[in-house]
Amino acid sequence: MRKLIIDKTSSSPKVILDPEKKVYLISGESRPPDVREFYDQILSWLQEFSLYLIKSDDKKEPVEFNFDFEYFNSSSGKLILDICKVLASLRLKGINIIVKWHFEKEDGDMLEVGKEMSRIVKFPFEYIESESD
């Protein structure tokens, strides 16, 4: 299974989706110039990854996705929710998906949006608080 690595820019997040190292992370700021194009590459990768996981012998092995956003714009929010929908559907198929939603200690908005997304996709997230810089 190939990995997907995208470097962080001033307007787009760092993406590490690496099955070999078992690291699945999207972090930073998300307001890419073409939001659809940016997230389509992640959603396409997730489709491949879904097939790979479903064919896997060990569905109980945890797959931990980390969302660690400083900020994302409203257009990105829609596509991040699409990612969460794919992860929720994998969970329903018996894959041991865990979603960790990171937020800065004083950023109640980021915590709230994580809870909203979790509620919409009917998938309980874990919330990880970090100290503010």
Binding site: R31, Y71, S74, E106, D107, G108, D109
Partner: peptide
């Protein structure tokens, strides 16, 4: 500004500019 206010202002300015 507090973190939450700063992020709100930043987010609002991004939406306006976009």
């Amino acid at each position: 500004m507090s973190i939450i206010t700063g992020k709100r202002v930043y987010g609002l300015v991004v939406e306006c500019l976009e």
